[in-house]
Design a protein around this nucleic acid. Sequence first.
RNA 1: GGGGAGGUACCGAAGUGGUCAAACGGGGCAGACUGUAAAUCUGUUGGCUAUGCCUUCGAAGGUUCGAACCCUUCCCUCCCCA
Length: 410
Amino acid sequence: MLPLDQQLGIIKRGATAIIEERDLIEKLKRGTPLRVKLGVDPTGADLHLGFSVVLRKLRQFQDLGHHAVLIIGSYTAQLGDPSGRNAARPMLSEDQVMAFAAHYLDQAAVILDRSRLEVRPNGEWFSKMSFMDVIRLLAKTTVARTLEREDFSTRAAGGTPIYLHEMVYPLMQGYDSVAVNADIELGGTDQTFNLMVGRDLQREAGQEPQVCITMPILEGLDGVRKMSKSFGNYVGFAEPPAEMFGKLMSISDDLMWKYYELLTDLPLEEIAALRRGVAAGSHHPMRVKKDLAKRIISFYHSPAAAAEAETAFERVFSNREAPEEMPAVALASLPMKAAEGELDVIALLTGAKLAPSASEARRLVQQGGVSIDDVKVTALRIRMPAVSSFVLRAGKRRFARIVTGNREPS
RNA sequence: GGGGAGGUACCGAAGUGGUCAAACGGGGCAGACUGUAAAUCUGUUGGCUAUGCCUUCGAAGGUUCGAACCCUUCCCUCCCCA
């Protein structure tokens, strides 16, 4: 194992809080592998960079020689974690959760070393508890304490409902720590309360309390709200390189430093140097952001794919050309409502899936957001170009190649 | 159990019989400007076989020439009291 201070350096990178750091040092000093717990509630969603922050931290512990324990919330996911929520989540069935869990593990394996991972569904212990056991667990905390949490107090103040089962959630998560005898638990800062409950329950159970390490919540592409599928501001693990590149380039300059710290392994000193360079004007922020995108894409795909994505990006956005690859749609397959020799632009846009509805397509045209072979479309019916295929573009980044079936004029 | 308030489009929030597909703000989308950054400005934001038609204002009925608005029943939430 690495010397203590080196381990600490890696562990502390990006972390918002370590409760308590001296406890952590004590545990590390023993030189034996620590049990590092991360609880996840699979909901069926595809993993995105927001999830990767805490998964990467867990991986770092694996690489340091510690023992990673991934708790699958087969029971807790059914309740839905109220953390950071302003409304209750729909409840899921255990079967659903376990099906989602398989999907989750497949994706998480991109980051974690699956061969050294202990996976435990928390139904393993919760299914064996009697109602009386549950009551005893409930007796470990008070309503006032639970209500102190910001998400609950906001809801209480705003008049939105808080259900009893939501209030049980932190106790369940805390009990997981007792069940697996965790030395350390990882989580987002929004998990702080839940993590702390684990310490209390362990202490009561005669265990040494876990160290809680909280990681920042990663802002999504908008730079404001947390990265989340429902906000549409995310980058998924499985997205194509070009898509990732484009999305990452759209983050704000300020945000990119946080992405560097939490999503790459570039040493902090080097990140700081880049930052100074941008501030001093010796580095162009776009260049630095492109490197960020390439680093991330190299991890999820490959360095070659990252380089390709960059080229494609420059082609489309810097040189304003059409991308090399885009979905091809046969004109004949579209329900055109145009006279002979004319194109029905609305049918074109909806048929090629560049617009969700005819009304939306009409709006796009009216606002000047549609072009055919780089010529802005100004009418809903236009003359059929005498080419074998043309590029249809909607907005900045939606493209399709329309194959007309015409012969290329000689 | 008693009393009060309320459920409106993606979200927040006006509207309380016709001029309401529904003000305003946020978000989204598009355009301008750019480094597809941020900021800013402008436009737009239910659907369709489109000078009209259809669906939408918690659900179902009803009154009316006409209902998001009035009545009835039901479902849901919040607050106060017990």
